[in-house]
């Protein structure tokens, strides 16, 4: 009997072992982009509404929403979400400031206030929002099975 259990267990292990290769499907990620539009209300006041645009013009304010969910049945450790900024978008920050950013194409990371930006002429200055090339959220705890969340940042069409 004992032997059988052990055998069964090893069989299960054998089946489970390739699991890390299948784990690629365990986190679902979706991206949405909204644009802020000023809409004239019947009472004459202007309201800001979010629309999902197909077309924008320079200066439009965009809201990026990234949703994630662990759809697998094991926790995802060292979980992070990165959003490279499209070149035509200038970063405008997040509401909670928990992100880290890169101003050099993803080579180095940190809170914006810690970063320096090197201009083409070699001059180094504190990094600005408009220098940001990547936004990243790094989780300090694993993403348990079934858990989900939403990350939001803002940008402006250059």
């Amino acid at each position: 009997m004992k032997f059988n259990i052990l055998r069964k267990f090893s069989l299960i292990l054998a089946l489970v072992s390739p699991a890390p290769l299948l784990a690629a499907n365990e986190v679902a990620l979706s991206s949405d982009v909204f644009v802020e539009r000023n809409v004239q209300k019947p009472d004459g006041k202007t309201a800001v509404v979010l629309e999902q645009p197909t077309r924008v013009i320079p200066g439009d304010k965009l809201v990026f929403v990234v949703k994630y969910k662990n759809v697998g049945d094991t926790p995802a450790t060292d979980f992070s979400v990165t959003n490279p900024l499209p070149k035509a978008v200038a970063f405008n920050g997040t509401s909670d400031g928990t992100e880290i950013v890169s101003v050099d194409g993803g080579k180095s990371w940190g809170p914006l206030s810690d970063l320096k930006f090197t201009r083409e002429n070699g001059e180094v200055r504190p990094a600005l929002m408009s220098d940001v090339t990547h936004v990243k959220w790094t989780f300090n705890q694993s993403l348990s099975a079934g858990s989900e969340g939403k990350l939001v940042f803002r940008g402006t069409v250059r």
């Binding site: 784990a23 990620l29 982009v33 094991t74 992070s80």
Partner: peptide, 12 residues
């Protein structure tokens, strides 16, 4: 303007 987000995590 094409936006793609990326998630990464440990495969165990």
């Amino acid at each position: 303007i094409v936006n793609v987000a990326q998630a990464s995590y440990d495969d165990g």
